[in-house]
């Protein structure tokens, strides 16, 4: 009984950690630009696919990972530079369509560059399951927890302890004020896309040994990350992490105890319920319209 629960919890935490990283990616970009980047899932896919093919081609894993992250960041920067920046002042729908267009474009490119097959990576440190109170934990899940945790700590440090990170936060609160004190808004935008792409790629790399990946893998991961970000309250980093974990765990429990077929629906059912009662997510700021 408990063992089964623990098992679901482990698997929920594993996917939840990835959703949290994706959600953070949404939050970072949203904060700096008020753009919802529907191509966030594609960064995850690119990270996983690029690493998998490079490893298959004989490159050592660490090098392959580093190169993939670099590639993903370059895609992120290109996306900002060529697709988002020229449309800076457009309305919500327009930018949503641009980023969806970008995601379709990237999927199409991935399908040509690679193929439509599923790819995997060997687990980073073996596949010997670890027994925990009757449940089993794959070593790769520990990697997922560890890396996600490290990334979150690093981000916290970046946003609270470095000049540039603080500048990025400042821009999200008040763009004009940030500009007045000399923060380069353009640079902040580029950095936010690069950072989100990096987060996506990290998530993609650590999860690929567990879930495998293919050119379409980014769609659902991206949408779940979006749910995580909205659940926590758009633009709230901590909220996105909590949101991601909630979505991951709820999904795992529901597929264990209710029906595995409805696993993918859970995230959206939760989000609808939350939005019905809390239109700004769990931790979102409640705004009063000024008229």
């Amino acid at each position: 009984m408990f063992a089964a629960f623990l098992q679901y919890l482990f698997s929920g935490l594993t996917s939840g950690a990835i959703y949290a990283l994706a959600g953070l990616g949404f939050a970072i970009i949203y904060n700096s630009s008020h753009v919802i980047n529907f191509a966030q899932g594609e960064f995850i896919m690119i990270g996983g696919m690029a690493t998998a093919t490079m490893v298959a081609a004989g490159l050592p894993l660490p090098l392959a990972i580093a190169l993939s992250m670099l590639a993903s960041m370059m895609v992120g920067v290109a996306l900002e530079k060529f697709a988002i920046e020229p449309a800076r002042n457009s309305d919500v729908v327009t930018i949503i369509i641009i980023t969806i267009g970008a995601s379709i474009f990237l999927r199409g490119a991935a399908q040509i560059l690679w193929d439509k097959e599923f790819h995997s990576l060997p687990a980073f440190s073996g596949e010997t399951p670890i027994g925990v109170f009757g449940a089993t934990l794959m070593p790769q899940s520990l990697w997922v927890f560890g890396v996600s945790g490290a990334v979150i700590v690093a981000l916290w440090w970046f946003f609270n302890r470095t000049m540039f990170g603080k500048a990025m936060l400042g821009t999200s609160h008040n763009r004009l004020a940030a500009q007045l004190v000399g923060v380069g808004v353009k640079k902040v935008l580029l950095a936010s896309f690069a950072l989100s792409a990096l987060l996506g790629a990290v998530g993609g790399v650590v999860v690929t040994p567990i879930t495998f990946t293919n050119y379409e893998a980014g769609i659902m991961l991206g949408l779940k990350g979006f749910s995580a970000a909205v659940l926590g309250g758009l633009g709230n980093g901590g909220g996105a992490i909590v949101g991601g974990l909630i979505v991951g765990i709820a999904e795992a429990l529901a597929s264990g105890y209710l029906s595995s077929a409805y696993k993918d629906a859970i995230a959206f059912i939760i989000i609808l319920f939350v939005l019905f009662f809390m239109p700004n997510g769990l931790f979102g700021k409640r705004g009063t319209d000024r008229v």
């Binding site: 641009i98 970008a102 995601s103 379709i104 474009f105 199409g108 040509i112």
Partner: peptide, 17 residues
Amino acid sequence: EQYEAMILGAIMMGTMI
């Protein structure tokens, strides 16, 4: 055929920009 998705995506982005 195989460039369909890429072209569609590019058209979406281009028109909106």
